[in-house]
Computed example of a mutant assay.
Amino acid sequence: MYFRFPLSFREVEELMLERGVIVSYETVRRWCLKFGQQYANGPRRRRPRPGDKWHLDEVFIKVNGEQRYLWRAVDQDGNGLDILVQSRRDKAAARRFFRTLLKKTGAVPRVIVTDKLRSYGAAHREAMPSVEHRSHKGLNNRAENSHQPTRQRERAMKGFRSVGAAQRFLSAFSGISPHFRPHRHLMTAPDHRAEMTIRFAIWDRITGAVSRPTTA
């Protein structure tokens, strides 16, 4: 069993109760704040450099009953680049996401692919005018599909309580979730089992479950 960190409180409570440990909601919240991003950074550091074709998309999420927007970017291989929770999806919000994305990745793409939201075009001309921009609904399925794990966790957690909490959780979750989703549909069963064995071993080292190997 592995911890799809950060978990919902009910999941953590059940796992710890099985081990004879009683925890409170505040304890779990503090664990998430302390270890969530640290654990997420481990798999990210092991990923190859992002591809040169980026897919960007935004979906609405409910935060304390109010509509907010989750902006997400992935490369052509489906690797998550960054996420940002914002209250709007206008030009200023798109520009902020572009600049955050460029700073976070430290790279400039050859082309970006978005849907037909006009905010992308306006922000693109200011933030990365030298990059080719393709705006087409049918070309952006990769970014749209990348939202599915987030939707599943959102339902399990019954929504988010604040923008800050949503940003912290989704930032960590977006770094950890792909580590345990190695494109199963493209692998044979033996290859998938071998790949997951490697990924579990990496996860154990990231979380400190086993000692890191010493170098000769």
Rank of each mutant, 00 (worst) to 15 (best):
Y2P: 11
Y2W: 12
L7H: 05
S8V: 06
S8P: 04
F9V: 13
E11C: 06
E11A: 14
L15F: 10
M16K: 04
R19N: 04
R19K: 14
G20T: 10
I22V: 11
I22T: 09
E26P: 00
T27Y: 12
V28Y: 11
V28R: 02
R29M: 12
R30Q: 15
W31D: 08
Y39N: 01
A40S: 11
A40F: 07
G42E: 13
R45E: 10
R47I: 01
P50T: 15
P50W: 14
K53R: 15
H55F: 12
E58N: 01
F60H: 11
V63P: 04
N64I: 04
G65F: 04
E66Y: 08
Y69W: 15
L70S: 02
L70Q: 02
W71D: 02
R72I: 02
D75T: 01
Q76I: 01
Q76A: 14
D77P: 00
G80S: 13
L84F: 05
V85Y: 04
Q86Y: 08
Q86S: 02
S87E: 12
S87I: 03
K91G: 03
A93I: 03
A94Q: 02
R95I: 05
R95S: 11
F97E: 10
T105F: 11
T105N: 05
P109N: 13
V111C: 15
V113K: 06
S119P: 00
A122T: 07
A123R: 05
A123K: 08
R125F: 05
E126H: 05
A127E: 11
M128E: 05
P129F: 15
V131K: 09
E132Q: 15
E132L: 12
R134S: 07
H136C: 04
G138L: 14
R142K: 14
R142F: 08
A143V: 06
E144M: 12
N145V: 07
Q148F: 05
Q148D: 11
P149L: 07
R153W: 07
E154L: 10
R155A: 15
M157K: 13
K158Q: 12
G159D: 01
G159R: 12
G159V: 09
R161C: 06
V163L: 12
G164A: 15
A166Y: 08
A166N: 08
Q167C: 05
R168V: 00
F169Y: 15
L170W: 05
A172P: 06
F173P: 01
S174F: 03
G175K: 08
I176D: 01
R181V: 02
H185L: 12
H185M: 07
L186W: 09
P190F: 02
A194G: 00
A194T: 01
A194N: 09
A194D: 05
A194K: 09
T197D: 13
A201D: 13
D204C: 09
G208T: 04
R212M: 04
